[in-house]
Design a protein around this nucleic acid. Structure first.
Lengths: 348, 348
DNA sequence: CAAAGAGTTGTAATCGATTGCGTTAATGTA
DNA sequence: TACATTAACGCAATCGATTACAACTCTTTG
């Protein structure tokens, strides 16, 4: 009953006394095969529990139907949602997704990238790590002619498609929202300025201040990482300034949370005294007793679009490289941490 | 400069006027190759930007160095942490992890499982979906002799290893903790009893009640899913009972959160009037203003151990099937939602 | 000086599926 | 009846790497 080795088309061909070529064609619905043979093969294959060896097929065809995704961390809501979007879009097309984490280290990023290329995947989606300065590994990958799509954190490169958020607009919107709530001294918890996204959020912030005639205080901009502690420290530092802020726009939700905790411990009321806006719309932001206003990056959509861009690329003419740059619009979810005007936070 | 096709060992062999076999051996550190040739090949391979075609190698060797993981959802902290554990343990051994989601649907589970088997992965890690009753697809997979390791949600099957939490103990510990805090009427928000884990948590709960001489009220046990709303509804239902509970042990963090929200809206004080304990130690539980006591399932460890079990299996003698059942101990993180006796919740 | 041994490298089969080209048999046409 | 056409299928090469089994060149030894 057991002890069965893998069944190949040769096993089927022997059993039916036909050639392996015929079996292959029959299984692939080749029209040159008679109906009888086709059915017979199908039936026998089922009986013998035949499973196609996709390695062999991939070797022959050059297509593995696997794509790779490289993200800094898999356990960030944003990234896992993007991945889900990619999956949802690609699964119906028979693709499978291989997920890799760089842990924000270029070194890992390089390893993962090479490993994926060795595995002959059909495409790569990636969000570069914070520490990625040198891009030789990516250029090398491009030479292999493997479709590459950047999402969220991209690197400017000709011939490479990308799907990103309009981070400038996001920064602008968040800041403007705070201004509309009556805030005049808005601080900004920035991320690593090496990353374009954080730079853009900051620029959006500055631009909004300017547009509304508010002065920009460099000491009100503090670089943080995505840890709660860094949000706490930032507030501590801000409250030593001459001019205490009456609002905080954080480029990350975790830093925003830390900021809120620190503000509360200082008995500063939110949103009455200080409004806070976060970024990423992490699930926890809406679960809090004081739900946090946050900027949604529409990660699911981002993943889906990235997948679509990839599909276009592989369906289309392989010889010409398509370069498609998609920019998504952010969506602000106003909640109690900044919503002075709203009474009851809606269910979002 | 560009337009380069993939470089194979044949390209190297032609360039050096040696056979492909020699190139292969040189690259694989075969001792039968002279030092000179080895170095020459290595140098040339680097120059030509040779990358091994792992498909071909896998086809020949029967090993892909890929393993598959099937989980209900990727964006649950628990699952993503387990995956991370698996990755951390397996990456140094050259394995790559392919992640699949079942979305709690057997149908998807079957598809993903077959897709993985077709791709010839070297092993499978899985946590079955809620709707998995019939296990034919898993039995069929076992016939392929692909190592399979269950984690968290297992199915009883001879010859299959598993790494799970001691859910009975977890239920017992959580309940006993509540009893120690002085609670006498402890309700339980259960999960889908079809799943062993929820059954065991419930049994642990009952056992603790019994052990401490508390009567078990069937109407104090309510089945929930892992949604916030179901926790809210559960409280609404509980508070219509004759005997209102003075504690809630939820088998999931989201239901616990919903319960807390509902309790607060009813102006019931936590933990003074009602203590609440959740399950899974989702990150948000400790971020809340009222941090939630929760049972940690040591997911990282679970993943690592599952990976180790797999490694043992593939390293060892292939002919004999090893069956290893690992049971991990849960860890309770007591926080303000149940910690009447603690003053300041520690940083955990 | 011939035979044996050690050290290197080559030949060719193999993994499993695909596919261009050729072959056979059946049918159609003049 | 002779030839052309078509349908159905087989042969063998191919994808790229691995490896058992030679084969070859030196060196060593009796």
């Amino acid at each position: 009953m057991s002890g069965k080795e893998k069944v190949t088309i040769y096993d089927i061909s022997k059993k039916l006394n036909i050639s392996a070529a015929t079996v292959s064609r029959a299984l692939n619905q080749n029209p040159k095969i008679s109906e009888k043979t086709r059915e017979l093969v199908a039936k026998t294959a089922l009986e013998m529990n035949y499973k196609q060896n996709r390695l062999a097929q991939a070797l022959k065809s050059g297509k593995t139907n696997n794509v790779g995704v490289i993200v800094p961390y898999i356990n960030r809501s944003f990234f896992s949602s993007v991945i889900r979007g990619i999956e949802e879009e690609l699964t119906p097309h028979g693709y499978h997704v291989i997920i890799c984490q760089s842990h924000e280290e270029v070194k890992n990023e390089i390893n993962q990238l090479n490993a994926l290329l060795n595995t002959q995947i059909d495409g790569i989606f990636m969000s570069v790590s914070k520490t990625t300065q040198n891009t030789d590994h990516i250029k090398k990958a491009l030479e292999e002619h493997t479709p590459l799509v950047f999402f969220d954190r991209k690197i400017e490169m000709s011939g490479v498609s990308s799907v990103v958020l309009d981070d400038f607009k996001a920064g602008y919107m968040a800041t403007e929202h705070l201004i509309m709530e009556g805030c005049k001294k808005i601080a900004h918890l920035s991320g690593d300025i090496n990353l374009e996204i954080y730079k853009n959020r900051f620029e959006g912030y500055r631009s909004a201040l300017e547009k509304h005639g508010l002065t920009y205080h460099p000491e009100h901009v503090i670089q943080t990482n995505s840890k709660i502690e860094s949000g706490q420290q930032a507030v501590a530092q801000l409250w030593e300034c001459e001019e205490k802020p009456d609002a905080i726009f954080s480029a990350g939700d975790y830093a925003a949370l830390g900021a809120i905790q620190e503000l509360k411990s200082r008995n500063i009321r939110i949103p009455e005294d200080v409004c806070v806006v976060g970024f990423s719309n992490e699930p926890f932001t809406k679960y809090m007793e004081l739900p946090i206003t946050s900027m949604d990056q529409t990660p699911l959509l981002m993943g889906k679009i990235a997948a679509q861009v990839f599909l276009e690329q592989v369906k289309g003419n392989k010889t010409l490289t398509i370069e498609k740059k998609v920019v998504l619009s952010p969506e602000l979810f106003v909640r109690s941490s900044s919503g002075r005007s709203i009474l009851q936070p809606a269910e979002n």
